[in-house]
Simulated scan of single mutants.
Amino acid sequence: MIRCTHVGGPTLLIEVAGWRLLTDPTFDPPGRRYAFGWGTSSTKLTGPAVAPDDLGPLDAVLLTHDHHADNLDDRGRALLPQAGTVVTTRSGARRLAVDALGLDPWVTTRLEAPGRPAITATATPCRHGPPLSRPVAGDVVGFALTWEGAAGALWISGDTVLFAGLREVARRIPVDVAVLHLGGVQFPVTGPLRYSMTATQAVEILRLVRPRVAVPVHYEGWAHFRQGRADVDAALAGAPDVRTSVRWLPLGEPADL
Rank of each mutant, 00 (worst) to 15 (best):
L154S: 02
P135E: 03
G152M: 05
I156E: 05
H128E: 12
H128N: 14
P135K: 03
G158M: 14
A150Q: 07
T160P: 04
G152F: 04
R134I: 04
G158L: 09
F143M: 09
T160Q: 11
P131K: 09
A151I: 03
W155I: 06
L154Q: 00
A150L: 08
G138D: 04
G152P: 09
V141A: 13
V136F: 13
G149L: 07
D159S: 15
G138W: 03
H128T: 08
G138C: 10
D159H: 15
G142T: 01
W147Y: 09
G138L: 08
L145I: 02
G142D: 01
A144P: 02
E148T: 03
W155M: 12
H128Q: 11
P135M: 11
V140G: 01
W155H: 15
G149A: 12
R134M: 13
A137S: 15
D159E: 15
V136E: 04
A151V: 02
T160N: 07
F143A: 03
G158I: 07
W147K: 00
G129W: 02
S133A: 10
D159G: 14
L145R: 02
R134H: 14
S133N: 11
T146K: 00
W155N: 08
T146L: 01
H128F: 14
D139P: 05
S157W: 14
P131Y: 12
A151T: 07
S157H: 10
S133T: 03
A144S: 13
E148G: 10
A153P: 09
T146C: 06
L132N: 06
V141C: 07
V140K: 04
L154Y: 00
A144W: 00
F143T: 01
P131S: 06
D159K: 15
W147R: 00
V140W: 11
G158W: 10
G149K: 03
R127H: 13
P130G: 12
L132G: 05
